[in-house]
Nucleic acid binder design. Structure first.
Lengths: 222, 222
DNA sequence: AACTATTTTAAGGTTAATTTAAGCAATGAG
DNA sequence: CTCATTGCTTAAATTAACCTTAAAATAGTT
């Protein structure tokens, strides 16, 4: 899952960024409202964490502009505890949820995962294809009951494949959903990671789940 | 569908080119305005993706000259985000749509497919002849309900046949709509591909859909 | 600073798609 | 009916896409 974090205080930003990366999210950081809007238009984020107090352009305005541009990404707003009226303003500007600072990091994680699953029919956050299972909340992956250790990138890639199971996804799409902002299209990292995943997931199993569609990309299916 | 991409930055150009080819579009690339005009006069593109900032001749001028020469191909303009007035200039010069760079690739794809379907009565993008069906958006082809795997060229060729169903189309026309820029007219690739298609589509079915019109070309009809 | 794990780059080998080429079959004008 | 032309089919050659591996670079830890 790709998240844009919009926060100007350096310390707070890197604290949150680090915490999110530990949870295997792919994170970009913007430190002002303009940059945030720019990034949000360019990249298909799954969620934006948006501080209200920002230089150049405040969070409320950023959120309004996102909505008026029909960018329908989830927005989680952050603001200081004492400014209660900001909550109302925030939600009215189109935010999906709201969290007062300071907060327990656990609380932030809980809200993020609630948001990311809001429109899903299945809220358990457990993805399944054949005997391959991924628990999105616990970040655990098993094949035939046996746990598989994945790095962040591997996890993010497999998650994207599983969310789009049975659909062919192109390298271009993968690069935009699983890699960060400045991705170089001449590289073959995606191929290399597909190989990593195959070794960890398909190797030694009769049914291959990762399939190559020549000239197009990859599919995850039985 | 055949697209001319006009973009001078090599990296950007090859990123877009690859993404389009993954979606089965036939793509030619021009890296300056003169080359673009030349190619557009010679080849019947379905769409031109035109960057504004170009060496030799800028995108606005290229677009104006296309229009004054009555080349009525769809034009989608690209320009940098910060130059808002270019949008007005672009649309005034005869462009059909406009997209600010950088952009999310999916946004570009969405606009392309909207443009290509703009003047169609049926916007579903599903083509049918007898029990042969093609979903232009999902890139899926079925005959009698059974899915048929096609390569990019096969797909592009069948798409063109289906779009012109019941009309006899010549090899020359096919080469102009389905093959790239430097097509050698002495080759028999088209015959070979027709054979590939017949094997995948007609073989084992009572009704043949692909018919040869001796001395003229081919038709797709019941 | 040194070590470890992860991510990225790069290169050579493999496979699939596309094009070329050649021989055979069908067509139709004379 | 004949034969030149056009089309079909197959296999080989070429090109492009993909896979695999190892080494290099980066990031994170101790």
């Amino acid at each position: 899952m790709r998240i844009l974090l919009v926060e100007d205080e350096i310390k707070m930003a890197s604290f949150i960024e680090r915490g999110l990366k530990e949870e295997d999210y792919v994170v970009d950081v913007a430190n002002d409202g303009e940059k945030a809007l720019f990034l949000a238009e360019v990249n298909p984020y799954d969620l934006i964490i948006l501080d209200i107090m920002l230089p150049v352009k405040d969070g409320i305005t950023v959120c309004r502009e996102l909505r008026s541009k029909k960018i329908n990404v989830f927005v989680l707003m952050l603001t200081s505890k004492d400014r209660v009226r900001d909550k109302v303003l925030g939600l009215n500007s189109g935010a999906d949820d709201y969290l007062a600072k300071p907060f327990a990091f656990e609380e932030l994680l809980a809200r993020i995962s609630a948001l990311l699953r809001r429109n899903k029919t299945d809220k358990t956050g457990i993805l399944k294809i054949a005997d391959l299972e991924m628990d999105q909340l616990k970040h655990k992956v098993t094949r035939a009951g046996k746990e598989i250790q994945l790095t962040s990138k591997e996890f993010a890639l497999l998650e994207y494949l599983m969310l789009n199971a049975t659909h062919v996804i192109t390298r271009t799409t993968i690069s935009e959903h699983v890699w960060h902002e400045d991705f170089d299209s001449f590289t073959n990292v995606i191929d290399v990671y597909m190989n990593f995943l195959r070794n960890k997931i398909d190797k030694g199993h009769k049914k291959q789940l990762i399939h190559t569609i020549h000239g197009k990309g990859y599919v995850l299916r039985e």
